[in-house]
Amino acid sequence: MAITRDEVLHVARLARLALTDAEIERLQGELSAILDAVGKVAELDLSDVPPTSHPLDVVNVLGEDEPRPSLPVGDALANAPSREGGFFRVPAA
């Protein structure tokens, strides 16, 4: 399945990636190869196989609604490139 240049650009835009022409060309080939590999599965008759949403055959892994301590605000903000008071500061959204 051949991925077009426009499809690569679309996905790149959604992921906020700026790509060079060389990268676009390379990704066209790589993404096509990945889709072809996955496409092999489509050759099988899977009409009565439910989709797998998780590889483990486990359900209902839950936590009780009991509070645990949160981080001190200084720790929460420690890695923030920019802050203002107790807030994270980012460019105008």
Binding site: D65, E66, P67, R68, V73, A76, G85, F87
Partner: peptide, 21 residues
């Protein structure tokens, strides 16, 4: 009492970023 995917306690009007992990 706590958030959906972690156990930070929920409140309303707390000082900003004091209920995080």
């Amino acid at each position: 009492r706590t958030k959906m995917f972690c156990r930070c306690e929920l409140g309303f009007g707390d000082p900003e970023n004091t209920r995080t992990c």
